[in-house]
Design a protein around this nucleic acid. Structure first.
Lengths: 345, 345
DNA sequence: TTGTACGCGTTATCAC
DNA sequence: GTGATAACGCGTACAA
């Protein structure tokens, strides 16, 4: 049987409450007694049972991190930074990874009831949710890098992200102004309220603003596998584009990972990057800087987004500041994967 | 206040135990009563408090996954597969990520005491540990993809991995037999009992078997940052090699991620891969197949390792089979990053 | 088939 | 400064 606080108490010849005080660092205790107890605790390797502890305590210091699409390196980095920040706030992170067909809010609700969460951070997934369900969470939550619709009628209010519409428009406009017209799109989730939808809108707006028509044969969507943002999916989509659109001169991908897969497909197709086909990614992950060719991409300011997310969440937890929508500045980073297109040569 | 089983009982006009029976799927209950209760449970979104539950139950169905170096895509994939398998066994995964300066066994011990674990899987980290500490865990554990020393005097007995010495020897021998002599090494952790040490041994043995001397200027080690296996570290190490070893014709890296960073450095250095410098990685991650150039690498059979790990752990949990050492077969996968060296041209 | 009462390990509230 | 004791929410033996 595992050692309990009772055993420790017996060993030290004191009461359980004294042991509890020693462990929790309570001030009302004789330093000598504490020393004695802590020594035994060390020796036995005793760790208080977390269940009993959190059962007794009305509040925990758990922050849940609900991630949809954990394989995406962009999130890996985000998770890393967020975990660090949460720890610095003296809290523990419960990392939960949800499949693309699961409802993240439902899962969060379960976790909140189970674990008495202090707050929730959603990473990835949709930005539209059932208001009732969100209310039911009963704890502060922030949507991070999930995008949001600009109409503002959404019940989700705590939200940190780049302006996905603007960012995608920036990428597409850059390609158009570089002389590209036949710009393929490797998209994801344009039919659901996600960043995919927003970025798709940005793509369309860029065309419209330049007085150009959109050819729907240029648009592909990935949806294979449980994870959508994979190199394999980017590879497959690019293959299709290359086969069906002979005069393709550029591809805009909704993530760097997709872009890398696309690059490989272009190379395999016997074409050169960027001479024959330009590629633009999205996210600005570390890998993009080392990929050959270095990717031209839209950089999301990970560290700033993480910091803002944490600040907002803990502001809400402490009741100081309400949740709000914060747009961070995305940035076009020029790499080696883009060059002028046919109309600028 | 959060809803409890008592509230549900009151709402339904039944006793708490009846509600408990309904939720846990106990057979001794009137189907009609269960229906009624479950409906209310659905409506209120009630979820039993996990703390109270696990406090009461002497055993949990939690399996801990302790990962050292979570940013490595190789582990990302492993985690994915392991989580799936654990869920299929009807258990929950507690994912815990430890920093490179933390002791994974110590953390595991804390977790075991806190959460009444069913079993532990260690991913990454060292293979030598304090036998006492391991005994103290009190639950079955398996070391996965961590390597092991062949002398067998180690207390760690449940272990699934490739033969890192053999695998590294295979990679190095391949380069030597392709006509390379000046083969740089981008290593990690050769001074600690880790896969790095084993792979380093393999590198040395290959040289020895071919009657060649080892030049220690060819050996670099990465150790920057909290995560060692990063593109950035590979990049920096390769830069140094290229600067200090003018006649370098190949580099063997202890991971694909390092290899990708190295490739970038070689390209930036104005050299061509594989014409000027060949590169061999280790792991065989998905990305290696899409990288440009496609990496020549040592593939670790992720799915098989994961399956074997799970089988062994649950065999131990059910007391059917004892822990043992299992070596999986690594495989040299030829890509586009290697070519014949000066001595075969 | 159903309800009552107890105990899991911990912390907080009291007396002492 | 310290020890006994009552909760926390749940599962379950046992009584009904």
């Amino acid at each position: 049987m595992a050692t309990t606080i009772k055993d420790i108490a017996k060993m030290c010849g004191v009461g359980v409450s004294t042991v509890s005080r020693a462990i929790t660092g309570h001030p009302d205790i004789n330093p000598a007694t504490r020393e004695k107890i802590m020594k035994v605790v060390e020796e036995t390797g005793f760790v208080p049972n977390a269940s009993a502890r959190s059962l007794k305590q009305s509040e925990s210091n758990n922050v849940a991190l609900i991630v949809k699409g954990i394989a995406n390196p962009f999130f890996t980095r985000m998770i890393h930074v967020l975990e660090d920040s949460i720890e610095k706030k003296g809290c523990a992170t419960i990392l939960r990874h949800v499949a693309s067909n699961q409802d993240e809010v439902h899962i969060a609700a379960g976790l909140a009831a189970e674990r008495k969460l202090k707050g929730i951070i959603f990473l990835g997934g949709n930005f539209t949710h059932d208001g009732m369900q969100l209310k039911n969470l009963g704890v502060p939550y922030v949507f991070s890098t999930i995008g949001m619709d600009s109409d503002g009628k959404d019940p989700v209010i705590a939200n940190v992200s780049v302006d996905d519409v603007e960012a995608a428009k920036m990428a597409t406009s850059y390609l158009i102004e570089s002389g590209h017209r036949r710009i393929g799109l490797i998209a994801e989730g344009i039919d659901v309220p996600s960043v995919g939808q927003l970025r798709y809108r940005g793509y369309c707006e860029a065309f419209k603003e330049h007085g150009l028509e959109i050819d729907h044969r240029l648009i592909t969507q990935v949806s294979d596998g449980e994870e959508h943002y994979t190199m394999e999916n980017g590879y497959k989509a690019a293959k299709i584009l290359l086969r069906t659109v002979p005069d393709l001169s550029a591809i805009f991908c909704f993530s760097d990972v997709l872009a890398m897969g696309a690059c490989r497909a272009i190379t395999d197709h016997g074409k050169k990057i960027p001479e024959d086909v330009s590629v633009v990614g999205f996210d600005g992950i570390e890998d993009a800087k080392y990929f050959i060719p270095r990717l031209t991409t839209i950089r999301q300011p990970v560290d700033e987004i993480a910091r803002e997310t944490i600040d907002m969440l803990f502001g809400m937890i402490e009741g100081k500041t309400p949740g709000r929508r914060v747009l961070m500045q995305a940035q076009l980073v020029l790499g080696e994967s883009t060059a002028n297109g046919p109309f600028r040569r």
